[in-house]
Structures are given as C-alpha cells and as structure tokens.
Design a protein around this nucleic acid. Structure first.
Lengths: 350, 350
DNA sequence: CTCCTCTGTGAGAGCGCTCTCACGCTCGAT
DNA sequence: ATCGAGCGTGAGAGCGCTCTCACAGAGGAG
C-alpha cells in the first residue's frame, strides 16, 4: 500500500505538549495561541510564542486534520489532453496563479495529473476526504470527474466551461469574445474575405471561438461562408493542412483567423509556400499569445488570455463552495485582449 | 491560521471500526488487510475486502500519518527563475514525469511554487514534517533551500546540478555534452567559423553548454576565439542582441550555436535582417528542442533533452534517500540528442 | 504426552491535536 | 453584600489509525 518502508521518519520535533510545558500553560492554551484565538491574555500569548520559537515548533498537520476533518489542502486536477498542454504555457501560468492564491490562504496545493483512463483512482482519492475541494482543469468533454464529485458532495470548481448539465461553478475565458475580436480586427484592417481555422468542434474553446468569428461577420453585415471555415486540431500540422484546404477552396481570401498560435504558425508556412505575403496578401491572427507568436516571421497578432487571473478567481470560487456547503454555482468569465503584431498590419492597397 | 471555516467537512465515511464490525473481525485484522500483510488467512481477507467494498471504505490518511509518522507525499519545489519557465515546456514535461512516477508508488505530489523571497515559509513547511522528502527544481544559484533541508535532515533531490558545496543527489542533463554535440555538428557541416550565443554564466546550464562548445572546438583542433562568444539571457531579445554583436565583431562567421531555441529564434531574425541566409550563409543550432524550433523559418536544428526521464529518475533517487536515512549522494546525468532540421543543413559551396 | 514453534487473530495503547465543558476569577448591577 | 455575566484557563475525551504484545490453536519433535 504505502511506498516507503523507512521506519524512522520525521525526526521527533516539538509537540504541543512540549511547548505547553516550557511556557507553563496547558495544551489547550498553546492550541489557542497557535490558532489565533482572541481569548488569550497578551502575557500568556507572548510566553507561548516565545516557547514556540525556542523549540522550533510546527503543528502536526496530520493530528490536526484528524480532529478537524479538514485537510487544508486542495487538489488541482489536470487531465491532460495529449499534445495541447505541452505546446503552450497555459499550464504553468495557470498553476502559478493558483499556487499564489493558495499560499496566501495557507492551503496546500496537491497536484493530480491522472493518466487518461486512470480517472477512477483519482475519483477515489478526491472523494476519500484527502482534500477539501478540487479545481478541475478539464479540457475534454467526456471527463467523468465533475459528476462523480458532485454526486459525492466534494466541492469542485472548473477551469474552462463545462459541458451542459454539469452544474458547477467555473472560471472561463470569453472565447467567443476573443474570436469576435480577432475577426473584427481583420475586418477593420480592410480584409474582404476572412476565413477561419477553427479549433476542434468537440471542445468548448473550439466552438466558442468559431461562434465569435461568426458574430463579427454578422455584425459587419457579411455572410458566413461555410467554405471559409475549416477545423484543425490546435497543432502546427493541423493548421497547415487547414490552410491548404482554405487556399484550394478560396484562393482569393485575404484574412485568416486561426484559433491557436500553433495553427497560425502552420498556416503561415503554407501561405509562404504558396506565394502569399503576410500581411500584404493575407492578414493573419492567432490565439493564445504564446511565445511562438513572437518568433514567427512576421510575428503574429494574437488574442491574449488572462490566464494568470484565472487561478486566483477559481480559488476564490472554490473556497466559497467549501465554506457554504451547497450553494448556487457561479461563473466568472474573463475578457480577452488583442495583441497587435505585424501579421495583420493594414495593407497599403485599395 | 487555517483558511476554511466550514465546520462540517468530509461526510463521515466508513472507518476501520465499521469495516471490522461488518466483517466480524477486529480493527487490527482489517488494518492488516488494507496494508497487505501476508499474515491473514484467505477467507478472512476475502470477507474483509467484501466489507470494504460494501462500505466504500477509504483509509483516513491523516490518522495513518499520525501514527506512522509518514505523510506519503513528497513536495516538488519550483522556484521559478522569472521568464525562463514560461517560455519552454520544461516545467509541464518534468512535472508529468514526476507525477506518473509518484502515482505508481501511491505517493502524493504536493506542489510548492514559492514566490521569490518567500523561501523561509517554504523551508518551514518542508522541515515541518509535512512531506517525506522534496524534489527541488531550483534553477538559480543562491537558493537557500537545499542547505536548509540538508541541515534539518529532510531528504531532498535536485533537478539540475547544484552549485559546488551542496551535497545532495541530483538528476541533470548533460549540458556540456549537448553543447559539444551541437558545436561538433556545425563543424561536421563544414562551418569554418563557429560562434556561440551562450546562456547566462551564473547558471549551470549556461556555463556547461559553453564548456561543451569549447570542447568541440578543441577536439577539432581549432582555437577558441573569445570574440566569438557572447552571452544572452535565454530570451528572444537576448539572442537578437547577442547576434548583432557577433556579426559586428566577426562578419565572416558561418555557424552559430545558441544555448536556447528562443535565443536562436532571436538570432535568426537578426541574421535575416542583416542579409544572411540560413543555413546557406550561416548555419544555426538551438537548444531545448522546444515547439518554437519547429515553427521558425527555417526550422531549427536543436538539442533535445530527455526531460520526461528526469522526473522518474529523480523520484527514484528521492525514494532511496528517504529509505536509507543518510547515504551517499548519487547523481544521474542524462544524455542529450541532436535533432536535425533545416537551419543547419549542409551548405553547397566549397 | 509434553514441550516448543509457528500462524492467525484480538486487545489496547497511543500518535498530536482540537474542542467541549467546567471552573475560578473579576466586575458591574442590584 | 449578592448575584450573574464574561473572560481566561485547564482537564479530558476522542478523532481513525498502526503496532506491539498476548494468546489460542495447530502441528512437529522429543
């Protein structure tokens, strides 16, 4: 069951008892000081604090958990959709935000990265009372974890919009608005024929960004030509393949919104190979504002997501959920930002 | 002290006692079954297992920790060197490897990402017996954590070579060999005048990759011209600035080894801006084999590091260290691999 | 038939902490 | 003077588990 056989672990360390002895008070009083109860006289508090310092006392988390039935730690569950997570810095940026928010609150971050198919074990862990709540960074739709936690009453908050029917609080980025903004920018730059390389249509960001593309066209009084919409899988190769198809279908296009920077980079290489100048012949906008956007030639205009903010917001929602047993799910949707670079600079002509 | 005030947490859940009652045995026997002791008769074991299933019993980790003085979790401490971590997928790749290795062993991964300057709190946590050991992904030299843990006897393993004097086991990638391999490749491709954009010289990878560069030149019977060595800070801009200086100092150079892909990408844009064809005029090799290497034009030849392997190796070392109290530090140094792409293709001429 | 070993099981202590309850004290109101 | 309220403190139970020890019974050796 357990992995480590070493018998003598964690050298003794001072206990509450020891501190009480040194300070000349009872265990209960030391406990009160440690837990910042107001019901302790200043003098006693001072002497206890001195004893704590002297002994280098740190409360034993296990003992405390045992009685409080709280673990003071929360899980971040990342079910990795293969490929995606490694290709952009979403994950580290998000985790850092979460980590910072938790540290301030004296909560511990337990990271779970279940292999695909290993969800059962993860569910067992989460419902086993090992954590006070879970943050689910769950990017694929069939994930069974949200339902399992809801059923067992484990507080959970999602990062990313859940599929309909999952009734949990979540934090999301406004992908639709991002797609709209990217597309509108292309129209503003004077593009007549704007195509899109959409994301996978079984993922919310893929769907939403495409919706945003349509919104912008409709708002500008344009028609949405289905021939100008091709889906990719968020990868470089997928973007390249989609671009080939778009150029075949519509050689005259002069603007492309790609739903990820990686796809935009793929599209860029195809455009170049087929003799199109970017941005002069075809303007291009990506999504994510990843480091790649700065290194392509020309650098990519892209949609920046406030990923750092998502972590703290999600933590806030989770702590609310933990505090008030069951309550109405809430949602936080963050706005995106357009970062202009050369790939969509206004063309000279007409 | 604690962050969450909710009183009623973690719905009761079955205890050992309850399982024992249902199975008609004593707590001790249930404990034996749960901990896979061999000293239980098959019949009793079966009935206990049935009871466990029936009640959905999960052992209470806190109670167990309290008596075993083990936490069955290990910390991964990432003290982020600002900028670096977000620009390449090192972090997620490493963490995934660690996570997988720990899951197999039923250990929990507790992730600590102390803000710079917040090391004291992290040290308190680590030495407070909350984890059985720590994996330190500590990329900057002045980190006080390794010493603090050594002093307090907390098992620790480093990812990345520590500065001299820190006497802990570690896992590292052979940066020197990587630098040598990259440089040798350029020489093999026929380059006469090979420069390098080195990494920061206060970081081990920066120093080692530069040493490798020198090794290759010396082995080839060339002289090492200090004018052909300029340091960057691993960023795109740093690489660009360094390339400018190199071209100013030595217009005739025909090969460049950049100690990161990001710097290589920066160098690439400068080379192009100054009219050099890559690879025809100047061959270029990067480092990290990050996604960026595939998206530049031309794609970058780069040095691939076996980051996925580092995690499991580090976990192995740590578990050894935890098992055998104090023992000789060990080191694991992993080899790199050259990934050839167009940026260093053999030139036609001479 | 006695003694010993070995195996499977149960009884019970105790890990370090929190929290309820009770108690003694000091005040202000009566 | 008497009472009650409120405050600071201590005593003690008990959270769920592991682990040592004791013990009953089975079997083998003498």
């Amino acid at each position: 069951m357990t992995a480590i056989d070493g018998r003598i672990r964690n050298r003794p360390g001072a206990t509450l008892e020891a501190v009480a002895l040194v300070a000349g008070v009872s265990r209960a009083t030391v406990s009160r000081v440690v837990n910042e109860s107001p019901r302790v006289s200043p003098e006693v508090r001072a002497s206890v604090e001195a004893a704590i310092r002297q002994l280098g006392y740190t409360p034993n988390r296990a003992a405390r958990s045992l009685v409080t039935r709280r673990s003071d730690s929360i899980a971040v569950v990342i079910t990795e959709p293969p490929g995606r997570l490694f290709s952009d810095p979403f994950f580290p940026r998000l985790v850092r935000g979460v980590s910072a928010a938790l540290t301030n609150r004296n909560l511990q971050l337990v990271l779970l990265m279940p292999e695909h198919g290993d969800e059962a074990r993860t569910i067992r862990y989460l419902t086993g009372g090992h954590v006070d709540g879970a943050l689910l960074v769950s990017l694929h739709a069939e994930d069974p974890i949200p339902e399992a936690l809801t059923a067992r009453g484990v507080p959970a908050v999602l990062v990313g919009r859940p599929r309909p029917g999952v009734d949990l609080s979540y934090v999301d980025v406004d992908n639709r608005q991002g797609g709209e903004r990217a597309t509108r920018h292309l129209l503003d730059q004077g593009c007549r024929c704007v195509a899109t390389i959409a994301g996978p249509q079984d993922m919310a960001p893929g769907v939403d960004r495409l919706d945003g593309y349509r919104d912008a066209l409709v708002a500008a009084g344009r028609e949405v030509d289905p021939g100008l919409v091709v889906s990719g899988d968020f990868t470089h190769e997928g973007g390249a393949a989609a671009m080939e198809r778009l150029l075949d279908a519509c050689p005259g296009l002069d603007g492309v919104f790609a739903a990820s920077d990686l796809m935009a980079a793929g599209a860029l290489s195809v455009l170049r190979a087929r003799g199109r100048q970017v941005p002069d012949d075809v303007a291009l906008v990506g999504y994510d504002d990843s480091p790649i956007a700065e290194t392509t030639l020309p650098p990519l205009t892209s949609i920046r997501q406030p990923i750092e903010e998502m972590g703290p917001d999600a933590v806030r929602l989770l702590i609310d959920a933990i505090g008030h047993g069951d309550h109405v799910p809430r949602r936080v949707v963050l706005a995106t930002q357009l970062v202009e670079r050369a790939s969509s600079a206004r063309r000279e002509r007409s």
